[in-house]
Each structure stands twice: as C-alpha cells, then as structure tokens.
C-alpha cells in the first residue's frame, strides 16, 4: 500500500514505494525541521520569551508550532483557485488532495485561511498576532503560569493598540482576530488526530 503524507510541509507527499515506513517518516521529519527551527528563531525574538523557563519555552513551542505555521503559511492556500502550494513548490488541487485522504482538515484549513486573509493584516500585525498565538498561557504543562500570562497579556495589549491604530473605524477587527485563535486551536486538534492516525497506520 502506498504511503501518502499530504502535508504542505512535506517535500515528498507521495513516498517512493520502495521506502520503508520508517524512512518515509524520517524524510517527512527532515522536510518540516527547517520550518520548526524558524518558529523557534521567531520565538527567541519575542521580547520576554527567552526570560521564561526553558521548560515553559519548550512547552509553548511544542503546543503552538503547528498554529504558528498555519498562520505563516495561510497564503499557500489559494481559496479562489482551490489549490495548495507545498513547500516543495508543487501546487495541488483541492480535489487531488482530498483523493490523498485530506478531507475535513483541509476544508477547515481553507476556511481559516480565507477568514484570516479577509482581515488584511499588515506584516507587523501578523507578526504580533503570531506571537500572541505562541505565548498562550492555557497550554497544558506550563510551570510558571504567572510569567506566561503576564507576557501574553502585554502582547495582547500591544496587538490591540496596533490593530486599533491601523483601522480605527473597525472596532470589531481586533475581536475577529482574537477569535481566529479559537479556530487555530480546533485546527491544531484536528491536525493532531490526523498525525496520530498516520502513526497508528
């Protein structure tokens, strides 16, 4: 049976049949590792992040990396054309990806990308929103909750000021943006379930 890992972060979504499942999994790991490293580098540049305990930094990154990548790569989802461009540069149609077993998760990713893009965030707003997503005090396993909460609150305050300043006539824009965090959490859970099913298979 051919193994298909149709993740936009996978350089080789349709694995060579001669490869063992272990080799396919290792190729996949090598494909997404640079993106994960970029998320870590991004986190290091969030003022106050490096002052958190090492364990809390790891906990936040483990829990939030998918969500950060989803925000960062939302532009790979072309809602109008119904296509997804993988990091390899190959563009797949929604229909083809559904044929590879990417059903509900993909639809929800498209929906999220469309909603996020409709907010037309500036690069600065997007970067700050991504920092707020990463520094989420409600991730399980946080040791020093107070420190993470304080950092998240200060990031949210700056984001609110920034969003209000760039679009003072639209008071709901900030609320809409914060609601995207809940959408990201849903996507994260769906993605985790998908990963588990691959591993079990």
């Amino acid at each position: 049976k051919d193994i298909v890992l149709a993740c936009p972060m996978n350089m080789f979504p349709q694995a060579e049949p001669s490869k063992t499942p272990q080799e396919i999994w290792e190729d996949f790991s090598l494909s997404f590792t640079p993106a994960v490293r970029e998320v870590v580098e991004f986190a290091k540049h969030i003022p106050g992040f490096s002052a958190l305990s090492e364990n809390d930094q790891v906990t936040l990154l483990k829990a939030g990396t998918f969500e950060v990548l989803m925000v960062r790569f939302a532009s790979l989802f072309n809602v109008k054309e119904q296509t997804v461009t993988f990091i390899s540069g190959t563009t797949y149609s929604l229909e083809a990806l559904k044929g590879m077993g990417m059903g509900g998760l993909l639809d929800t990713m498209f929906e999220f990308s469309e909603k996020l893009n409709s907010l037309e965030l500036t690069a600065e707003e997007l970067g700050l929103f991504t920092a707020v997503v990463l520094v989420s005090a409600d991730r399980s396993g946080i040791e020093n909750l107070n420190s993470v909460e304080l950092l998240q609150e200060s990031l949210i305050r700056v984001l609110r000021t920034l969003v209000s300043k760039s679009n003072p006539c639209d008071a709901s824009r900030f609320t809409k943006l914060l609601l995207k965090m809940s959408d990201l959490r849903t996507l994260n859970n769906m993605h985790s379930e998908k990963l588990l099913s691959f591993r079990i298979d």
Partner: peptide, 27 residues
C-alpha cells in the same frame, strides 16, 4: 503514541534550536 508532538520528534528539534545547536541537514 498519545502525543503527536513526540511522534514528530518535535521536542528534540525545539530544544536543539533553542540552545542554538542547529545541526545541518545531511545531503
């Protein structure tokens, strides 16, 4: 395997990157 992040070896990649230990991908 109850933790997808562990399945992916995410913690190892994150810890290495946090410590600045960026091993290059072998060709």
């Amino acid at each position: 395997f109850s933790d997808p992040a562990s399945n992916l070896g995410l913690e190892d990649i994150i810890r290495k990157a946090l410590m600045g230990n960026l091993e290059e991908r072998p060709e």
